[in-house]
Design a protein around this nucleic acid. Structure first.
Length: 580
RNA sequence: GCGGCUGUGAUCUAGUCUGGUUAGGAUUGAAGCUUCCCAAGCUUCCUGCCCGGGUUCAAAUCCCGGUGGCCGCACCA
């Protein structure tokens, strides 16, 4: 039977993901969570090698953001009270209204069902959606059955915090780490000694009650994320380190127009990427991803479509990697504007603004309404306070020359005579201005990056599997073997192993089975180098260092191992150059 | 969440249709032998029918429910 070529490719690709996931399970990278109880969709445990490799990826990420960009790392709670997510918009926006067919049970998104009648369907309330469905007689797309009323489905996990008959205070598991940074903005602003711009990062878990988790770790309900929030002055799109990356070649898929392959500098000049600072972090993201092992040939940046944007974002570029699951979003670089901070200002009544000092303070003369409390008080008694506030908020020009003025407080009108206040001109010193900072957010999905790195590192030749992981990512750096399990060789090999570990190099000591089998074990988990003590070692104090990818060997004196390995692991020298 | 397919040691798989020995094999793993540099060979060993009900004298096998996986639809702020 003839199989269409497109299907053939699909089949082969699917087999690839199976192979990678099977290897990941067998060798302790990824394990389905709670497997002895049947497992649970959307949850994965990181095994011993996986935990280490994940940490290695996170450490390199820290190198970029904390050391490289000077961002500060915090670790905020995973549980927050409801108010946080009301302010962030997640309670209202992080949900879909679903309608169910009362006849066949098919479930649809309510806003999709009324899209033809209402251009702004996703902004409607349950009641409004129900009204349109009723009015337009919208029925099930599949069987024409009657639809249920719209029911909200929020993707956040809800919690009751503490005891109490009502189940305690309502809270949620965070769907993103970002809110912990925004709620701490005031303290962070102080930490940075009120100097703008500044950045804050957080590596941690987020939780989303996905309707249909699938594809291994690509869509999880408990996920690992690394997020950076860069606070900048509103409208200021420059970035001091921009020039350093402006030559970086990017593959861009803008939401209008064709896919292009151009430098960051050109992309910003041509207006494909609107802001320098956003572009900088797109390019930085590319450097990071390629650094940890994402194949640059399988990497692109795609701009979100207008209707695809999250509720808080004005612009967003996703880093997408080609995997056997198709193009997978690894990172989102979003312009969140001042949405989040403004939301928290509105809901918490706290001042979460930054202050920018002018180079020179200016003095302005200003007319002001100055209330005489000793006159106003006795006249209006308990209403006096509110009337005072209202008066002071009025435009002095409107009060000039009038005998009395009508003030509306809480729906009641009060006639206030001119003896209650005076109009005066005061000098005011203005030394700067306050503004709500804008936020640029690069948000990394660690689990997806982890998987992509595994898949892009996976090599198979004649059923022999090698993970070509970067030496800084590989969970084990060096295998240490005696050629045979003989005491004279073991006595030489063990101290080498101890020495390397004491210097912080992750090793794996192995004396069982044939030497080839031991190399194969290490190749399969991506260990870049293996050291073997052989019978010649007893005579010349030399050992062989073997390279995972080329299988070449070099002979090195035991006393020089540490120095040589240091250079090899940092990628500063290739083993072939040491070979003798 | 709906529908289809599916679940046998860590991995791959035979057996399931047609119920009936101690569930067979391979890989991996462990212990050992072998001067052993690329999954060599030999010996020995560990580990399994997704879970729960039901039918039956008897269930890996048939039925029902749950659950995991894959695929399609929907979803993916």
């Amino acid at each position: 039977m003839q199989i269409p070529s497109s299907l053939k490719i699909l089949r082969i690709d699917l087999m690839d993901s199976d192979k990678v996931l099977t290897l990941a399970k067998r060798r302790g990278f990824l394990w389905p969570s709670s497997e002895i109880y049947g497992g649970i969709a959307g949850f994965y445990d990181y095994g011993p090698l996986g935990s280490t490799m994940k940490r290695n990826i996170e450490d390199i990420w820290r190198r970029y953001y904390v050391l490289g960009e000077g961002f500060a790392e915090i670790s905020s709670t995973m549980i927050s009270p409801e108010e946080v997510f009301v302010a962030s918009g997640h309670v209202k926006e992080f949900l879909d209204f679903l309608v169910e067919c009362t006849k066949c049970g098919e479930v649809f998104r309510a806003d999709h069902m009324v899209r033809d009648f209402e251009p702004n369907a996703d902004a409607l309330s349950a009641g409004e959606l129900a009204a349109i469905i009723d009015r337009e007689n919208v029925v099930c797309l599949r069987c024409k059955g009657t639809l249920s009323s719209p029911k909200p489905f929020n993707l956040m996990f809800e919690l009751g915090i503490g005891a109490g008959l009502k189940g305690g205070r309502k809270g949620y598991l965070r769907p993103e780490t970002a809110q912990g940074i925004f709620t701490n903005f005031g303290l962070l602003y102080r930490h940075f000694r009120e100097k703008m711009p500044f950045g804050v990062v957080q590596i941690g878990r987020g939780f989303r009650n996905e309707i249909s988790p699938r594809q291994g770790v690509i869509r999880l309900r408990e996920l690992n994320m690394a997020e950076a929030e860069l606070f900048i002055k509103s409208e200021d799109d420059s970035w001091p380190k921009y020039q350093e990356l402006s030559g970086e070649k990017l593959t861009l898929v803008p939401n209008e127009g064709e896919m292009v392959s151009i430098s960051l500098g050109e992309a910003v000049e041509k207006g494909i990427i609107k802001k320098q600072v956003l572009g900088y972090f797109v390019a930085l993201t590319q450097k990071f991803l390629v650094d940890v092992g994402v194949d640059p040939e399988k990497l692109r940046f795609r701009q979100h479509l207008k209707d695809e944007m999250a509720h808080y974002a004005a612009d967003c570029w996703d880093a997408e990697a080609k995997t056997s699951f198709g193009w997978v979003e690894l990172v989102g670089v979003a312009d969140r504007t001042c949405y989040d901070l403004q939301g928290h200002i509105d809901h918490s009544k706290q001042d979460l603004r930054a202050f920018e000092r002018y180079e020179e303070a200016t003095e302005v003369e200003k007319k002001k309404v100055i209330v005489k409390p000793e006159v106003l008080g006795p006249k209006f008694k308990k209403d006096a306070g509110k009337i005072k506030m209202a008066l002071e908020g009025m435009n002095p020009e409107d009060l000039a020359g009038k005998d009395s003025v009508t003030v509306n407080v809480d729906g009641k009108n009060f006639e206030v005579e001119k003896d209650c206040f005076v109009l005066d001109t005061v000098k005011e010193k203005i030394s700067g201005e306050r503004y709500v900072p804008n936020v640029i957010e690069p948000s990394y999905g660690i689990d997806r990056i982890f998987y992509t790195v595994l898949e892009h590192a996976y090599h198979e030749e004649d059923d022999y599997v090698t993970l070509r992981l970067d030496s800084r990512i590989a969970p084990i750096s060096v295998g240490v073997f005696p050629l045979m399990a003989k005491s004279e060789l073991i006595d030489k090999a063990k101290p080498i192993d101890d020495k390397l570990r004491s210097k912080g190099i992750m090793t794996y000591y192995d004396e069982s089975g044939s030497i080839g089998r031991r190399y194969a074990r290490m190749d399969e988990v991506g260990t870049p180098f293996c050291i073997t003590v052989d019978y010649d070692t007893l005579k010349d104090d030399g050992v062989t260092i073997r390279d995972r990818d080329t299988k070449e060997q070099a002979r090195v004196k035991i006393t020089e191992i540490l120095e040589v390995l240091g250079r090899l692991l940092e990628g500063k020298v290739a083993l072939v150059d040491l070979a003798i």
